[in-house]
Simulated scan of single mutants.
Amino acid sequence: MAGDVRLVPVDDKTLEPLLSIAAAEAEPDDVMPPVEAPAGWSHARREAFRDFHRAHYGGLEGPTRTLMYAIMLGGEVVGMIRLARRDEPGVMETGMWLGRSARGQGIAVAALREALTEAAGHGARVVVAETTAGNTPAIGVLTRCGAVLRRDGDDVHAEIVID
């Protein structure tokens, strides 16, 4: 199943399906920056989600220097992965989330591998990620994709060198 994973840049066509899977299968704080809004997937949070993703439509060369991808499985949006340019030349940062029904199936590993290929195509030599020691699934995905992990208290810094 994970072999059917592909990445599609988030745009007006993929934004609403991405919001739908986020609202149905994830918590707002897991998929977007915190906002002042009523709890849960209120109208205000949905608008903030849209605004947040639209702000990144400029991609790696745009003002946010971030490219958001919808993670597609068999034509359906199941989550999001991003690449962001860092100040250090040749270094990008990544982060992702998946809807609950897509977790534990190897989709995250396949998506990260696709993102690493994309990063290399944009000149990256290293991709970094940040997580927490309690996020065992993320640590597993990063490790399976070749990350070297460094722990600082509860924070985990991952670095993947792209060959």
Rank of each mutant, 00 (worst) to 15 (best):
R103G: 02
A22F: 06
R86V: 11
D87L: 10
D4Q: 12
G123V: 08
E36F: 06
T94N: 02
A115I: 08
A124K: 03
I81R: 06
G95D: 11
N135Y: 15
A124V: 13
A2S: 07
T66D: 08
P89F: 02
H43S: 09
P137A: 11
S20Q: 12
Q105A: 04
R50N: 04
R151K: 02
A108F: 09
G79D: 07
A115G: 02
A111D: 10
R144M: 04
R85G: 05
A108E: 06
E47Q: 13
V141F: 10
L98A: 05
A48Q: 09
A119M: 11
F52C: 13
R151I: 01
V126I: 15
D155G: 12
E27I: 00
V156H: 13
A158R: 04
W97K: 01
L60R: 09
R103L: 01
Q105T: 00
I107D: 01
L112T: 05
L67R: 15
A158Y: 09
D4S: 12
G79W: 03
P28Y: 08
G106K: 04
H122Q: 09
C145A: 09
T131L: 13
D51N: 14
D155P: 11
T66E: 14
H53W: 12
I139M: 15
E61R: 05
E93F: 12
W97I: 02
G74R: 11
E61I: 01
P89C: 10
R125Q: 13
R65N: 08
H157T: 14
V156M: 14
I71R: 00
V127D: 06
M72W: 04
E114I: 01
H56R: 15
M80A: 15
M72P: 01
M68R: 15
V141M: 04
D30A: 15
A120Y: 04
V77I: 08
E61C: 00
G123W: 04
D51C: 03
H56Q: 15
F49Q: 06
C145V: 02
D4E: 14
D11W: 05
A37D: 09
G95P: 13
L98D: 10
R103H: 05
L73P: 01
A120I: 08
A37Q: 04
G134R: 13
A37K: 07
Y57M: 03
E130V: 13
S42D: 07
Y69F: 15
G59P: 06
L7I: 03
V156Q: 11
A110T: 05
R100G: 00
V148K: 12
D11H: 05
V91L: 13
L149Y: 06
L15H: 03
A108G: 07
V31P: 00
L116A: 10
V10S: 07
L149S: 01
A138H: 10
E25T: 00
V91W: 03
F49P: 04
G123T: 02
W41I: 00
R100P: 00
H122E: 12
A111F: 12
D51R: 12
I162Y: 02
A26H: 04
V91G: 08
L116I: 10
G74S: 08
G90H: 09
G74Q: 07
L60Y: 10
I160R: 03
D152L: 11
A133Y: 09
A55N: 14
G104N: 05
A39N: 00
A26G: 02
I162A: 05
I162D: 03
G99H: 01
H122G: 01
A110E: 11
D154I: 12
